[in-house]
Design a protein around this nucleic acid. Structure first.
Length: 425
RNA sequence: GGAGGGGUGGCUGAGUGGUCGAAAGCGGCGGUCUUGAAAACCGUUGAGGGCCUUGCCCUCCGGGGGUUCGAAUCCCUCCCCCUCCGCCA
């Protein structure tokens, strides 16, 4: 959410940002509403001022026993009333209109973000690890999983429909091992505080992180008007909503392993096979709350925290800098990590790390009190996957597969698998 | 599900329809004292917004509406939190 005063003073920069996002210039429309709003406010405040003065005089006149003067003043104030009421209504209406308009606009990209319209315009920053050379045709994860009898899409369809999976036996355990491994690395080595958050949240929380009001169709809603979280970014970031933190409490780093629920409304026909794109998946999420000055450096740090998991699992990946129109609604800049899937022969997204600036903080009114300043300022927020567990499972399977369909477990996970080195075979 | 209690500044917590943006305490900041610190004492300290922007004004005591010349205070309504009972993992 943008500060209308900032738009007023940085009109060109704002519209340039909107344009990079693929939107028409917005400033003129917004500033018209703003001008209307300020005009009404000024008029309203003048009238309120007069009313207040008259009311005080009435009190004084009554005390002094000047009944006639008090009555005259009462009549005068009574006359203002209708006009005052009308102005109040109009002012509230136009403020709401402005708020509604602002709340639908995406964050604007930082200068270092490349222009572009789709994922084809994302920029590869670097590659890490070398894809393994196979002396046989590597299979896709669902082929491996089904052959092992540990990954069952048919059973899941009976229970829940498409885009669900049932994992069994060692694969179920491997999924659990991956999640525990990620949590342990992030909390014990990278300074994140482990959080066990609610999975059902209110409208306000989703407004705060930017999923609402615009993206309701991507979410699952409960019968009592709560929502299933699409990512732990929502509860973790909203931990600081409506608060003023002391500066020395920053940065705050939160980490949570949660299921995530997504309707995948706009993804019909995409990734229908296998467990790449599911309605329900586990993810270890990393959220940071920082000062404005520290935000950009924290982004690099968080990216490194996510990469560390891939490195320790021995999974080849590449780092992508997303182009302006491929970024999420609330992001100023996003790096994706794409893991190599030999079965598919493609790099696929496994983590997304974003800096949101004060965009979310404004929406949730999350502030801090700077050491040497009187006024509170908005915090900056960041989030990133560290990592998506289901996709990590796929990657471990496809990269660790053997010709006989067995899977070699990465060393880092073996302590979490009771020392086991292989699945199947 | 039943019954009750409550939402006030960074926090805790008073508040009689007018002089209440609001006592007091805590916390913060500045000072006195001290070699330094603590303690003590003194002072100071809410947020948002408008404008002819250094001063003046407006709004805000959960949200909205109402009564009134005037509402934190009275009425209505919605939201939220808590306690007890019941049920339950």
């Amino acid at each position: 959410m943008f500060d209308i005063r900032w738009i007023r003073e940085n009109r060109e920069a704002f519209d340039r940002g909107m344009q990079r996002r693929g939107l028409q210039p917005q400033a003129e429309r917004l500033l018209e509403i703003d001008e209307e709003r300020r005009k009404l406010l000024t008029e309203l405040q003048e009238l309120q001022n007069r009313r207040n003065a008259a009311s005080k005089e009435i009190g004084a006149a009554m005390k002094a026993g000047e009944r006639e003067r008090a009555e005259a003043l009462k009549a005068e104030v009574a006359e203002m009333k209708r006009r005052l009421q009308a102005l109040e209504d109009a002012a509230r209406e136009v403020e709401e209109k402005l708020r509604a308009a602002l709340s639908e606009l995406p964050n604007i990209p930082l200068d270092e973000v490349p222009d572009g319209e789709s994922e084809d315009d994302n920029v590869e920053v670097r590659r890490e690890g070398t894809p393994r050379a196979f002396d046989f045709e590597p299979k896709e994860h669902w082929q491996l999983g089904e052959a092992l009898g540990m990954m069952d899409f048919e059973a899941a369809a009976k229970l829940s429909g498409s885009r669900f999976v049932v994992l069994k036996g060692d694969l179920a355990r491997l999924q659990r091992a991956l999640a525990q491994f990620m949590l342990d690395v992030q909390t014990r080595e990278h300074g994140y505080e482990e959080v066990w958050p609610p999975l059902l949240v209110r409208d306000d929380a989703l407004f705060g992180t930017g999923q609402l009001p615009k993206f309701a169709e991507d979410l699952f809603r409960t019968t009592d008007d709560r929502w299933l979280i699409p990512t732990a970014e929502v509860p973790l970031t909203n931990l600081v909503r409506e608060s003023i933190l002391p500066q020395d409490a920053l940065p705050q780093r939160y980490c949570a392993l949660t299921p995530c629920f997504r309707s995948e409304a706009g993804a019909a026909g995409r990734d229908t096979r296998g467990m790449i794109r599911q309605h329900q998946f586990d993810k270890v999420e990393l959220v940071s709350i920082t000062t404005p000055e520290e935000g950009r450096a924290e982004l690099d740090r968080k990216l490194a925290c996510a990469e560390d998991i891939l490195k320790r699992l021995g999974l080849p990946y590449r780092v992508m800098l997303l182009c302006a129109q491929d970024m999420g609604f609330s992001a100023q800049i996003t790096f994706d990590l794409e893991v190599w899937l030999p079965g598919q022969g493609k790099y696929r997204e496994i983590s997304s790390v974003s800096l949101c600036g004060d965009f979310q903080a404004r929406r949730m009114n999350a502030r801090y009190r700077p050491q040497d300043e009187k006024k509170p300022r908005f915090v900056h927020t960041l989030n990133g996957s560290g990592l998506a567990v289901g996709r990590a499972l796929i990657a471990v399977m496809e990269n660790g597969q053997n010709e006989d369909g067995s899977i070699t477990i990465p060393e880092a996970l073996r302590p979490y698998m009771g020392g086991q080195e292989m699945i199947g075979g």
